[in-house]
Design a protein around this nucleic acid. Structure first.
Lengths: 339, 339
DNA sequence: CTGAAAGCGCTAACAT
DNA sequence: ATGTTAGCGCTTTCAG
């Protein structure tokens, strides 16, 4: 009755279809690829045969001859904890997937979580099963970045590490955005504004700090910036505690992510300070953290979905022969009640 | 000097290596696949030649002949918003990736976010580029689930939809866990305990409700369960508000996820109720939400990483010829201060 | 419009 | 131990 479980019978091939339809393999192939110059009769016979024998084209064989796979890889090279916590990655994936899907490309997300992964990945990428790549959260000196470049695969980065050379990327202007929101924070009348600066080994982290410095200009006081390793809630708490110890009179905080800001707010509030009364705080990302804060967090909106989409479209364009080019997306300040 | 950009020269093949090394293709292939019976001389010559011509094997060609790809797909079929919010997915990915990586398999995460995606995906899966699949968050009647079964691909599900038949899965016992934590909540002396029940169209959601009913036994009062669509913070708020209106005297809440619990706590607290004084609340997941709550949330620990790993190992075992079998993982109650 | 034939890059007998 | 030969399943000239 039902297909026997486990009896994975030989898959039908073009040949089977050709025989069933009484035509040649070439004609079947023409139908498969929607080419002209196939008679209606032949087409009908072939369609019927395909259905009858349950034919599904073998992609490996097709890739081998046409030298492309109609698939693009999206590489996430993120340290363990960050991948789990990063509020943007999922949106980037979804954005990229939808752009690729519209162009009938399959997106395959590949994770680089260990040295072994990186190794296998570079082999995988050069194996011909992937036509192009989107790289999320590459860092300076990243072996993946180097491998992608060496391979000469069409690629687009989300974010913009400095050693990218002329590669395509989709990014926001972190520095400018940080400058804007800090300026706005200062504009609320704060005198002693500090920053909790995470991830300075990444372009995003370094640029946000630079923007902060820009905004303060001559009033910049280095003792008011506290460095922390990660864009995380707990590092935000630790950073805030350290800062408070050094500068109890601080009255404004730019946290380099919403999670960091949430941690900072928690510490501020349990130290008895009111927000935004005693101290104003602003964040970065406009992630779900921002609305969950009390009061809701003023922050800069990061267009994660659009970044993913833009990177995917760039790869698609390169696949069609275009040159790689950078794309910079707007990220407006979203003002709420925390400052 | 440097490799000319854009001059994607023809990739070296086994043939080029063979010529360069002065041996036959067969011998090159043997070296590539680490087989015995290759002289040291030949091996050395071939290794040198590979390096010299910059040879990287073409996976499509290899897949075509050996009929496997050394890659497994991990399919995420999650509605848009949930994918972004779900605290478990990233951990599942990481767990599966690490198990597959150890076995030298490439994991490719595939997203099904639209009808078009589902279509393309089923073709992709049957294309021979994927040896097996892990399916995350399948739902009853899911077309992906059906396609996977029809294809006869080795597969393992994370979670356990009822229409799975004899397929392999890795899951927790949601019903039992829900019963346990509810019992514990009741044990703190609560008289009127309710539930905010999300995602009843999914096995996890329905099972958690069933466990809740089990725990209450004869004391179960249907008017004390509020249904909400999603495992989300905002639905948690809405659910809590609705419940409070119907039953202002409620003194215990089982929320079907940590995010839901966090939303409920927010509403409870801004209504002037203290936690755990006036009402005890417990959640489910042990995600980052739980520690972020104030007071920290009592919840059930969901072993997401291990679920991913177990599903991957199941696929690997099936690839080696084993029969599919279910795996149920422990999920201990983690008691904190919210109840 | 269609068939025949060649070949994508690799592996796997089968000889030797 | 190694060379030779036949394909894996598909597309793509090239004739006709």
């Amino acid at each position: 009755m039902a297909t026997m479980e486990g009896t994975r019978r030989r898959r039908a091939t073009v040949n089977d279809v050709a025989i069933e339809a009484g035509v040649s393999r070439g004609t079947v192939s023409r139908v498969l690829n929607g080419q002209r110059y196939v008679s209606d009769d032949a087409r009908a016979a072939i369609d019927a045969a395909i259905a009858k024998v349950g034919f599904v084209p073998n992609r490996a064989a097709r890739s081998l001859v046409v030298q492309r796979s109609q698939a693009v890889g999206l590489i996430v090279h993120e340290p363990h904890s960050l991948f789990v916590e990063d509020p943007n990655i999922a949106s980037i994936l979804l954005g990229a997937n939808s752009a690729l899907s519209e162009a009938d490309y399959q997106m395959a997300c590949l994770i680089a979580d260990s040295a072994r992964d990186v190794d296998r990945l570079t082999h995988y990428l050069s194996g011909g099963l992937i036509d192009g790549v989107i790289v999320v959260s590459a860092r300076v000196g990243d072996p993946i970045t180097r491998a992608v470049r060496d391979l000469g695969l069409p690629a687009a980065f989300v974010g913009h590490p400095r050693d990218l050379g002329s590669a395509a990327y989709a990014a926001i202007d972190n520095r400018n955005a940080a400058r804007e929101i800090t300026t706005r924070l200062i504009g609320t009348g704060r005198r002693r504004v500090g920053m909790i600066a995470a991830a300075l080994d990444r372009d995003s982290g370094a640029d946000r700090l630079a923007g902060f410095v820009d905004a303060l200009g001559g009033d910049f006081d280095p003792s008011l910036v506290q460095r922390i390793p990660l864009y995380s809630y707990s590092d935000g708490q630790a950073g805030m505690r350290a800062l408070l110890e050094r500068a109890p009179d601080i009255d404004g905080i730019f946290a380099s992510s919403d999670a960091v800001a949430a941690g900072a707010m928690e510490v501020l509030q349990s130290s008895g300070r009111s927000i935004p009364g005693d101290v104003g705080v602003v964040g970065f990302d406009d992630s779900s953290w921002a609305l969950r804060c009390d009061p809701p967090l003023s922050t800069v909106h990061q267009p994660a979905t659009e970044l993913g989409r833009a990177a995917a479209e760039s790869v698609l364009r390169q696949l069609a022969g275009a040159d790689p080019e950078p794309i910079v997306l707007e990220c407006p300040v979203v003002w709420r009640a925390s400052a």
